[in-house]
Amino acid sequence: MVRRQFLKNFGLFIFGVFSYFLLRPLFYVTEPPKKRIFISEEEFSKLGNIYLEDEFILVKIGHETLAFSRRCPHLGCKLNFDPESGLIVCPCHQSKFTISGRFISGPAKKDLKQLTVLKTERGIQVEI
């Protein structure tokens, strides 16, 4: 009886160790590296006041250039620009933002996430 109990416990122990080694890699993901996107001076001057890239929004206000992540600060949907109201809106739960990134209404409650814009003579670089 003692031996049986021991075997059972031992079996459970082995099982536990094994599941740990199995589960460990399942939880692990590699982070992708940061992306840098370059826009040349020439291209940049052609863009309008607001420009939607796949992952960021570029806004020109006077001489200033702002870049925002295109992910909504609420739950990460891709933001769009609504030319009628002149606001940045989220299609998922209708959060609204001004073009300078200020939160106006909706469930997001936060301003847009600003990205760093690096200006050089040859163009600008946005880091995501």
Partner: peptide, 10 residues
């Protein structure tokens, strides 16, 4: 894509 991102952030 939207659904995925929302689920992820939730």
């Amino acid at each position: 894509d939207f659904a995925g991102t929302i689920a992820e952030n939730m």
